[in-house]
Design a protein around this nucleic acid. Structure first.
Lengths: 339, 339
DNA sequence: AGATCGCCTGGGAGCGCTCCCAAAGCCTGG
DNA sequence: CCAGGCTTTGGGAGCGCTCCCAGGCGATCT
């Protein structure tokens, strides 16, 4: 069944049916209603490929997740992000094409994406600075938006959370609680989130006139195992608090602390970043910086759809605010209470 | 740039270029090489929509994840599954269209999927029995395959892991270690994985002539929080071991056990299911049943692509084997050792 | 040497839609 | 009552590809 059938069945022309389907205002209410009735009755759905071919738009957004950081993909971050992107696409009659850019296939994937006319635009969920896919996109002529700000190129569109401010708030919170030997477990410094969160840590210390001591900084690679290893390296330096740049790493830190038997928060306070679903259920519950992951995805999708419709806009640089979520691990709450 | 340009540039006809692109054998080696050289030099990529329209195939698979179980989506299970599907699609020159079927949009989504001609087939990653999307697919005429066996309808294609055998092995392992009061924390019984894993638990007990005691069974809803609650309900009945039907729930059980101060595995042994990435890093490391999640996704994709090419096949019912991974939490290892 | 066959190649038709232009219908004002 | 404008409608062309059929050409057989 095609548009011609609908035209015949409702006694109008192909063009009119097309107008109705595409919400063109130049159709009389009477005609529109008649056509819509037929469309519904015959359960007609326009053929996506034909539509794309004729219109030059696919109503599909590409979501590209480079797997250079494959290990991280089992992080709940991505499902949340995808949920946000998906919701925004649903609401605006778009679909998502998902590409996990396996390094091995990366070159092929890039070309396929750029030249295959599959999609109208790309959301690049790269956490890595200077990702080759990012470069390829700059050279292509497909609209695209980054999840995560670009460290140097400020002509690009992006959506990110304010990692620096969030990290700074976390550390300020620990400082307000009287902690003075605050360590940090960082993410990889070639990921902008890792970089910015360390910058936030340093900013907070400086703001209080404290020194940034290198032995209180350890890289935890944004993973549980990395957090554990990093914490074990930090413990000999006797920090009285730790800010971990992700909840996942906080989990590892928690494990290391538990192993040597220090009490949290009395002997060592802990603040994470992300507010992942599990953060409320650790022992003790984790104080952390909440970031709106799903919303980040949704805004990226919406912005991109807008960019497809109106290209050549000045760069959109969107920073979403974070929020400090106080639970037991930081020691701010007098007695352990239900969350 | 289109196929005509390539034809002109390589001195052959449109048809010949099409043959080369589609690996049609009826082209002389000389011509093929010449055309391929031009394709590469001009960086030509066929227009996906035009191709789909003319050929009636899109080379796109739909991956549908119903969000009736939204909470579960932050489980690392889905990223792993998606990774498998993605790898198989990459290898076979297909793409993935992802639909998170939000209950609110479900009806619209179904129709869009079934009639939009977006995709050649559907992978339905529903964990729920009698999912409405499942019903809609049966009525449609698009090839589809389930992730997870269907409890009653055995005319459907599916890929699943052998949940029953896996669970049975887990409980048999505990029995072999001398445990006799073995409890279980189950998944929801309207999910086939939850159902089968409970069946495996029961099968193991019966095999040893032991009674299945209802007070040793509690539903943990496949979540950490649910596992915690379930464990607290089980503890008063003094089990000497617990089989949790997922690692996520094992995490919750672990937390509940730690709170009341029982020693694992001495006083209570614990075996999970999934072998999620975090299972090796719990305290103590979790003995669990490894299931090949990514492989499940890959096989689903491959089977579906085959089904698209050759429809009307007898139902493919594929069960993948699981594997017992012994760590410290079950007490089988004499002394805590590195994993 | 001519007929036959198989291998390659070329071009027409058409997939189902959108976009553009032309024209029909309707209303308003003089 | 007619001109002029706006609203609404119809049909042609074309998006870039695949598929089918026809035909050219060289090799093989008689």
């Amino acid at each position: 069944m095609n548009i011609e059938d609908i035209a015949r069945a409702s006694g109008v022309s192909r063009s009119t049916v097309s107008r109705v389907i595409n919400d063109d205002p130049n159709v009389s209410t009477k005609t529109r209603d008649r056509v819509l009735e037929v469309v519904k009755r015959l359960n007609y759905h326009p053929h996506a490929a034909a539509r794309s071919l004729a219109a030059g738009r696919t109503r599909v957004l590409g979501l590209v997740i480079p797997m250079g950081v494959a290990a991280l993909f089992s992080d709940p971050y991505f499902p949340l992000l995808i949920q946000g992107v998906s919701a925004a696409c649903n609401a605006r009659d778009h679909s998502i094409m998902l590409w996990l850019a396996d390094p091995e296939y990366e070159r092929r994937t890039i070309r396929q994406i750029l030249h295959g006319s599959f999609i109208d635009g790309v959301i690049l969920a790269s956490q890595l600075n200077d990702d080759p896919i990012g470069h390829a996109l700059i050279e292509g002529n497909l609209p695209f938006i980054h999840i995560g700000r670009h460290p140097t190129n400020d002509t690009l569109h992006y959506v990110d959370v304010d990692n620096l401010a969030g990290a700074q708030e976390a550390v300020m919170h620990l400082l307000r609680l009287g902690r003075r030997r605050i360590a940090t477990i960082t993410g990889p410094q070639n990921m902008i989130a890792g970089f910015d969160r360390l910058a936030g840590y340093e900013a907070a210390l400086r703001q209080r006139g404290l020194l940034v001591e290198p032995e209180l900084i350890a890289d935890g690679e944004f993973s549980e195992a990395g957090g554990y290893v990093a914490m074990r390296r930090l413990l000999p330096h006797h920090p009285d608090a730790v800010f971990t740049a992700s909840d996942m790493m906080a989990l590892g830190a928690l494990r290391a602390i538990r192993e040597i038997g220090l009490r949290i928060p009395d002997e060592i306070a802990l603040v994470g970043f992300d507010d992942m679903p599990f953060a409320a259920n650790t022992t003790p519950p984790l104080t952390t910086i909440r970031q709106p992951v799903a919303r980040t995805g949704a805004i990226a999708a919406e912005t991109l759809i807008d960019l497809v419709a109106h290209p050549q806009q000045p760069p959109r640089r969107i920073l979403l605010p974070t929020e400090l979520v106080i639970r037991q691990s930081c020691g701010a709450l007098a007695s352990p209470s239900a969350d």
